[in-house]
Amino acid sequence: MKVFSNTETFNYSWEEVSTANWRKYCPWNEKSTHVVAVDTISRSVDPDTGILRTERLITCKQTAPEWIKKILGCGGIDENQVLETSYVDPATRTVTMVSANLTWSNLINVQETVVYRPLNEHQTQFTQDAKITALCGGWQRIKNSIEDNMVVKFRENAKLGKEGFESVLAMSRRVFAEEQQKEKMGLIREQAGNIRIVDGAVGMAV
């Protein structure tokens, strides 16, 4: 088994991060083009704790090197799937996401845990832990190579993942500000309308 760990800080509030997290793999994120689809499989709120539990199926383009595909005997598969189970606890302001590979799960086991916690009102900490275990029988050397290869991939993706999510966060903040502006303008217009009505009513009374 090999382990990959990483910690990052985002200069956005936990509320912003946890909201944008649902859009992490949208087209705003140009760094995550390997993710081709994200589907919500189930979603529920725990009545006792208020924790929101979500299962998402993440479909990725196959990016394993040819030699690994050959060893694993699955060269024909061009997509793989990951099940991400997430828990949002609004009481402790924590998002925990546990992901496991569905494809090739009898050959290799990848378990990733990501946690978003507030550092303060304007910053959120991201911690990532991945455990990689090659299960296929055979030489330890091959297993080690497969695991090492995954760790390298995790390291590469971690950098891209941060950059990509940063652009989603920036875009989300912009859109949110625009929406708020629109709402504000609408409210002002509405109030202006009310004043006219009041004026009219006063006029009527007189």
Binding site: R23, A37, L57
Partner: peptide
């Protein structure tokens, strides 16, 4: 229009 990810 395309701010959401695609479905499988």
């Amino acid at each position: 229009k395309i701010k959401m990810s695609q479905s499988l």
